[in-house]
Amino acid sequence: MTNPLGPTLEAATAPKFLPDPAWVDASGRGVTVAMIDSGVDASHPDLAGRIFEEVGAKIEGSKVTFESVDDGDLAGHGTACAGIIARLAPDAKIASIRVLGASGSGDAQIFLAGLEYAVKKRYKIINLSLGTTKPQFFAPLHDLLDRAYQAGCIIIAAANNLPQPSFPSIFSSSLISVVKSEEPDPLKFGFHYGEVIELTAPGVSIRTPWLNGGYRTLTGNSFACPHITGLLARLVETHPELTPFQAKSALYAIARRNSKLERADRRPADA
């Protein structure tokens, strides 16, 4: 298949990222990652010392505010995602922005407020496992995603694989959307330019931290998402000025290189 973006992009990106093995060995040092999720069990042995902020949504009238919380994770999901990020980028600092568990939590308004909180704080990488199908949130989310893009925040969202479009994962311009693959190698992902959801990453039978110091084996797109988040934390460590656009280009170039190498590996056996 020919590169749909032409040779220029790959040529421009490749010298910068591909021959430079630094990011492969990086650990996310100095990088802040925000997680909009169910909270996090910061006392889990895999996460000790990695969570630098824990806030939870609070509703006052029609306003959503965030305040410091210490009662951890209400569902286990956030802990699972943080565990995946920590495995790939053990030195990244994670901010847990809890949008689950506030009264009236069926409302997408809270998750929008959580995203806005992270963008205002200019957290470099934002992991988003939530979405909404309510059309009234299309415009506000689109606007917020554009603001994030302009602020240099790289947002990674989990797709939901269901017939109805879910926002923001179907937006393609200002965020990175991920769907699960059965790939066992945590560092191996795919980039499918032209698809609504461009990235695939491991998301099937992932063993990761859970509540009360335990572990669970999990499957879902929301576990593919933190794989890309962790990988980007490594990239940002070696390239702190990485913009959302460059992040996507780099992922594209790396995925292409991976599949080329894989094809080259297979060739002798095929012959």
């Binding site: 209400l74 569902a75 506030a102 009264s103 797109n221």
Partner: peptide, 18 residues
């Protein structure tokens, strides 16, 4: 609200296997 796996699936709209 927001408790457990069901609470997460309701809010996130994400199917999950545990």
């Amino acid at each position: 609200a927001g408790k457990g796996i069901a609470g997460f699936v309701l809010m996130s709209g994400q199917p999950l296997v545990v």
